[in-house]
Design a protein around this nucleic acid. Structure first.
Length: 488
RNA sequence: GGCUCGUUCGUCUAACGGUUAGGACGUCAGGUUUUCAUCCUGGAAACAGGGGUUCGACUCCCCUACGGGCUACCA
């Protein structure tokens, strides 16, 4: 049984890079009929954020990622856990780590270190000025049993460090990168247990992955340098190692690791800007991997079916919004009317444009071919909410005359004001009615439709006049035609 | 600085060692259209550089350059 985990820290929001990692974990699990585990790595108490766990869970859910095990939010909004391998929150597993770290100390794979922060800082400072690598000098590794007992008895705070072998090399076969080997003399005597009794990432990740029977560790490339430490821990414990797959990073435009400051990195930022979760997921899935076909748009099932971890790229990918915008527009076009209206509604409320279902529906449907994000829909058609200030100079079509514009507007106004109100009930009926009228009158499209559109919208670019008339309704349409005529 | 990973159009990417190096976004030019958007057609645009290996290298090896990551009692 394949078991993969997504193991974020609850630091306040889900990073889009984290979303991609979670997605690849999910695709891999589903493809192989395995299980996806969510584990919360909250061993750094200084970076905890209230509600961080709930935020991760709900954001993953928004993206359509539902772990099989781990913390979840029940229908009553309570945080609970499911699965046989819990607890799935590391801060609730402290006793477990303590037990295993003691095993390591007993067997000589780890040792207690009493060095204080000041000494470590000084040491690194000196190492830096000497131009070499900055690593713990292993002073406490050589403490005699007597010295150690004395320090321990004195209540001196201490950490537990991994006793890295002095010689040799440690490596692993990365599913994405192939064999990676690192000389042991480059590996620091990593702190495993902090003086506050919390484990560091390195200890906790190995213990938990083993206990939770994780078969594949899928994580970001930034973990490559510390993977030898993890391999050493597996060896020290005598545990079978999982397979490792290190994903390429998501990058800023300047090719540095994707970060705040250079744009939005929180998934919720994209949600709030009006990106559809399907679009964001589709986009992010194709950053670093693709199904080797000429298509760009894939359903979730298609992604699952074609996913292949070993085909993931090795180079980092710039998170470029232009293509995301296009893709989001494609997804908006595919939405049903009901879906589009439902999704657009919150953005109207946020823009302070009310919750009038009818007007939201009209705006959303008029904008669907234009919109790249949901948030730009409410602001796109201001003339639906109040009468525009029409520039008289704009009213006649560029290749026509003011006289013709005025004549057409008068004709349209008279005709429209005499129409049965129910013709305005549907977009199709009003469009075919007015189109038929223009043809019957023998008017050419341009010299008629341009003035009408400008009279109704005041804009040089907007949706077509008939659909705008439908959206405005009979009364407003007639009124605006009237005030435009008065300006000519 | 040390260690390590990477490098195909501007961007995301495809290409059993044999292709006019393909697609998509963006861009440019046309077309459809009352305008914008949509839609259609077409164009420009890439194998980082140098050595090998090979009958033949984008594909394999080495070097260089450039870029990234890591270098915490953070993950």
């Amino acid at each position: 049984m394949i078991r993969v985990r997504f193991a974020p820290s609850p630091t306040g929001f889900l990073h889009v890079g984290g979303l991609r990692t979670a997605l690849y974990c999910e695709l891999f699990a589903r493809k192989n009929n395995g299980r996806l585990i969510l584990r919360i790595e909250d061993t750094d108490r200084t970076r905890l954020v209230d509600g961080g766990i709930e935020n991760i869970i709900s954001t993953l859910r928004w993206a359509g990622i539902e772990p099989d095990e781990g913390p979840y939010i029940d229908s009553a909004g309570e945080l609970r856990e499911h699965g046989e391998y819990g607890p799935y929150v590391q801060s609730q597993r402290l006793d477990i780590y303590k037990k295993y770290v003691n095993q390591l100390v007993d067997k000589g794979y780890a040792y207690r270190c009493f060095c204080c922060a000041e000494r470590l800082d000084e040491m690194r400072e000196r190492q830096r000025t000497e131009g070499g690598r900055t690593m713990y000098d292993r002073r406490c590794r050589d403490l005699s049993e007597e010295e150690r007992q004395t320090l321990l008895a004195s209540g001196q705070p201490h950490v537990v460090r991994l006793a890295v072998p002095f010689e040799g090399t440690t490596g692993w076969n990365d599913l994405i990168r192939g064999r990676i080997e690192i000389s042991n003399d480059q590996v620091d005597d990593q702190v495993l247990l902090k003086s506050d009794g919390f484990p560091t990432y390195h200890l906790a990740v190995v213990v938990d992955d083993h206990l939770m029977e994780i078969t594949h560790v899928i994580r970001g490339e930034e973990w490559c340098p510390s993977t030898p430490k993890h391999v050493m821990l597996y060896e020290a414990f005598g545990w079978e190692q999982p397979k490792f797959a290190h994903l390429p990073l998501l990058l800023n435009r300047d090719r540095s690791k994707l970060s705040k400051r250079q744009g939005d990195v929180a998934v919720e930022d994209y949600r709030d800007k009006g990106y559809l979760s399907e679009a964001l997921v589709n986009f992010v899935a194709l950053l670093g991997w693709n199904p080797n076909s000429d298509r760009e748009i894939y359903s979730r099932q298609e992604l699952v079916d074609s996913f292949d971890l070993t085909k993931v790229n090795r180079g980092g990918a710039i998170f470029d919004l232009e293509k995301l915008d296009w893709m989001n527009g494609e997804y908006i076009k595919k939405l049903s009317d009901e879906e589009l209206i439902g999704l657009a509604k919150p953005f109207f409320e946020k823009a302070g444009l009310g919750t009038d279902q009818e007007i939201i529906a009209k705006v959303a449907l008029l904008e669907r071919s234009r919109a790249r994000t949901l948030s730009e829909i409410p602001a796109a058609l201001p003339f639906l909410f109040e009468d525009p200030d029409v520039d008289p100079g704009l009213l006649s079509w560029k290749k026509s005359t003011v006289e013709i514009a005025k004549d057409r507007l008068i004709g349209l106004k008279e005709h429209i004001s005499e129409l049965e109100p129910k013709i305005f009930d549907s977009r199709e009926s009003i469009e075919s009615e007015l189109l038929g009228f223009v043809i019957k009158m023998g008017w050419t499209n341009a010299e008629t439709l341009w003035p009408m559109r400008v009279a109704l919208t005041g804009l040089s670019a907007s949706p077509g006049p008939f659909e705008v008339a439908w959206a405005l309704g009979q009364e407003t349409t007639v009124r605006r035609l009237g005030s435009a005529i008065a300006k000519l």
